[in-house]
Structures are given as structure tokens and as C-alpha cells.
Amino acid sequence: MNSPQASRPLAAPDQDAARSLWEQYAQVHPAAASASPDFLVDQFGDHAELADELLDLVRSGRKTATASLLAEYVWEGEAPPGIGAHTVFCDGDGAPRVIVRTTGLALAGFTDVDADHAWAEGESDRSLAHWRTEHRRFWERVCTSAGRSFTPEMEVLMERFEVVWSDAEA
């Protein structure tokens, strides 16, 4: 997870294209789609380069987990995903690229996130030290932009997922 030096802002996700990708998935996998018919549309990171970098890790199979501050869901008035939930992830330009299905969720304080989760996030050297440094920087930016302050006591929602569809299959 890199800092936003000379970064492009995230483009808004293309909702129509995300719906189209979802419909292609649902046509091929009707039982899976009907078991969880609602889906989220989202992007990784807080700038386009980071979104693309993390999405590339997902597409390569290296990234099978992500983490969010539980407080972000409250600030944004959204419910966190549940097991079996689908998310269409878009690149930094807003184009939908993959659909993932949530396979596991756990809560931990920032300082209690473990090395196994850091490894599953697949970033850089996959170490817990790197995870903590970069996620702290990221969440400090996120909190600042929301008019809040990051604290290590904040709860982290650790999510495991599997890719169930990609734009390459469409």
C-alpha cells in the first residue's frame, strides 16, 4: 500500500458497467447469484494508483483478504459485508474488473491484526510490520478526510474473499 505521491484521484465506479458484469456472472452462476442477489460496488484504496495496484494483486491471486475500519461503515451509513456477500471491485478509473465473494470475517483491534491476515492481504513483503505501517498511513488519511482521528484502538474488520468472476471471463 503506497502513499499517494503524485496520485490520480479515484474515478467514481461505473455503476452501469458493474451491473452488467454482475448480470454476466449471474447468468453463468444463477444459484450463487440468487443466494446473495445484492452486491456492493467498491474500490480498494484512496487513489487510483493504489486501487489499481491492489486490484492487480487480487487478479493475480496473491491478495485474498482486505481490511476496513469498522468505524468507516458507521461514518458512511453502510452495513459491513456478510459472509457470502458479493462485491464488484473497480479499478482506479472506475471500470469493474472482478467480483469477489466474502468467505470470512473477523474483528480485531488494529494492534491485534495478525501476521496471517497481513500475509493474505498480499502486499509488498507480506509482513505484519509492513501491513501495520502502510495501513496506519492509509487509515490516518481516511480518518483525516472524514474529520476524525485514527487511533490504534479502532476496530478493524478483516475480510477474506475469493474471486468468483472477472472481466476476463465476460
Score class of each variant (00 low, 15 high):
residue 1 M to I: 08
residue 1 M to G: 15
residue 2 N to T: 02
residue 2 N to H: 12
residue 2 N to G: 03
residue 3 S to R: 01
residue 4 P to M: 02
residue 6 A to R: 02
residue 7 S to M: 06
residue 7 S to K: 00
residue 8 R to W: 11
residue 10 L to F: 06
residue 11 A to E: 13
residue 16 D to F: 02
residue 17 A to N: 08
residue 19 R to Y: 03
residue 22 W to H: 12
residue 23 E to C: 08
residue 27 Q to N: 10
residue 29 H to W: 03
residue 29 H to E: 15
residue 29 H to T: 06
residue 31 A to P: 00
residue 32 A to M: 11
residue 33 A to E: 10
residue 34 S to L: 07
residue 36 S to D: 05
residue 38 D to K: 08
residue 41 V to T: 15
residue 41 V to A: 07
residue 49 E to H: 12
residue 51 A to C: 10
residue 54 L to H: 04
residue 56 D to A: 15
residue 57 L to T: 02
residue 61 G to A: 09
residue 62 R to L: 13
residue 62 R to S: 12
residue 66 T to A: 14
residue 68 S to Y: 06
residue 68 S to W: 09
residue 68 S to R: 01
residue 68 S to A: 14
residue 74 V to K: 01
residue 76 E to I: 00
residue 77 G to K: 00
residue 77 G to I: 10
residue 78 E to H: 10
residue 80 P to N: 00
residue 83 I to S: 05
residue 83 I to T: 10
residue 84 G to F: 12
residue 86 H to F: 04
residue 90 C to S: 09
residue 92 G to I: 01
residue 94 G to C: 03
residue 97 R to W: 01
residue 97 R to T: 03
residue 99 I to K: 05
residue 99 I to V: 11
residue 101 R to W: 07
residue 102 T to G: 05
residue 103 T to S: 14
residue 109 G to A: 13
residue 109 G to W: 00
residue 111 T to G: 08
residue 114 D to V: 08
residue 116 D to P: 00
residue 118 A to L: 09
residue 119 W to A: 10
residue 120 A to Q: 14
residue 120 A to E: 13
residue 123 E to K: 01
residue 132 R to S: 10
residue 134 E to G: 04
residue 135 H to R: 02
residue 135 H to Q: 12
residue 136 R to M: 13
residue 140 E to T: 14
residue 141 R to N: 09
residue 143 C to L: 06
residue 145 S to F: 04
residue 147 G to W: 05
residue 148 R to W: 06
residue 152 P to R: 02
residue 154 M to W: 08
residue 155 E to R: 02
residue 158 M to T: 11
residue 159 E to L: 09
residue 160 R to S: 15
residue 161 F to Y: 14
residue 161 F to H: 10
residue 163 V to H: 09
residue 164 V to W: 01
residue 165 W to D: 06
residue 166 S to L: 06
residue 166 S to K: 04
residue 167 D to T: 12
residue 170 A to T: 11
residue 170 A to N: 13
residue 170 A to K: 07
